[in-house]
């Protein structure tokens, strides 16, 4: 056992799609210091692609992404929550327990663990109902619980509250904060500056596939160093 799969290092990493370079080249490190790194930037900047690249859902066309542990350990100790929650066609409880099933945890043990989580996200009453009848916010909470049940070292979140109302957003943020508390490193994309202010330890401003600025949250919000970031914060359209 290693105590963390971090740091992860991106070295001249580039992602191309259909001949077009959509991300990179990027040189980035996420270390063991914990906290919540937040990616901001306009639509199409490459935030999703970057998260997927680190998580292994996209391949680097050039350069590399290096983790600090063996491949299977790295794979086992990170999770991803998608912008549009993916729910399995099963009960809520089975949805949450699913990653444990996949890891070969005994069924009953996995369900008991999932039951704790479902309590925590306030869905205990519908534990045995089909997950697809949940509201958007409930589905996203379910996805959060499913991502956290494996106690990952790193959790990637891709605009997890983009389609949610205030109350749901608050609950998701509570889950994120408590994950940070328990030592999970969060790397998250968001559109919501308020959210970034509330959660971020550091901010990465992304524009046209590149990181234009990477700074501690208080420094970034105190006044971005680059013109693009400043314009973006003021709400100007970046093209």
């Amino acid at each position: 056992m290693v105590d963390s799969i971090l740091p992860v290092v991106l070295d001249q990493a580039i992602v191309r799609k259909e001949g077009r370079q959509i991300v990179g080249p990027l040189n980035l490190t996420f270390g063991r210091e914990g906290g919540c790194s937040i990616l901001v930037g306009p639509n199409g900047a490459g935030k999703t692609t970057l998260l997927r690249l680190m998580h292994g859902l996209e391949r680097a066309s050039e350069g590399r992404v290096t983790w600090s542990a063996r491949k299977d350990t790295v794979y086992a100790r990170q999770s991803f929550v998608f912008q549009a929650p993916v729910v399995l066609r099963r009960s809520c409880l089975e949805n949450i327990a699913y990653p444990l099933f996949v890891r070969g945890v005994q069924r009953e043990k996995a369900r008991a663990e999932a039951a704790k989580w479902i309590e925590d996200i306030g869905l205990a009453e519908v534990a045995h109902n089909d997950a697809h009848v949940l509201s958007g916010g409930e589905k996203q909470k379910l996805a959060m619980a499913r991502a956290l049940i494996t106690k990952p070292d790193v959790l990637f979140l891709d605009e997890p509250t983009a389609n949610l109302d205030g109350a749901s957003t608050q609950e998701i943020e509570r889950l994120i904060a408590s994950a940070v508390q328990s030592g999970t490193r969060i790397v998250m994309a968001t559109h919501d500056f308020g959210q970034a202010r509330r959660l971020a330890t550091d901010i990465l401003f992304m524009y046209r596939g590149r990181i234009h600025e990477h700074a501690a949250a208080d420094i970034f919000f105190g006044g971005p160093a680059t013109d693009e970031a400043a314009k973006f914060m003021k709400g100007d359209l970046l093209i």
Partner: peptide, 18 residues
């Protein structure tokens, strides 16, 4: 169904059999 599940099941590192 695979189209819906694709990202999640790859993210969870399921084997082909799973």
């Amino acid at each position: 169904l695979w189209y819906l599940y694709h990202d999640l099941l790859i993210s969870i590192r399921t084997s082909k059999w799973q």
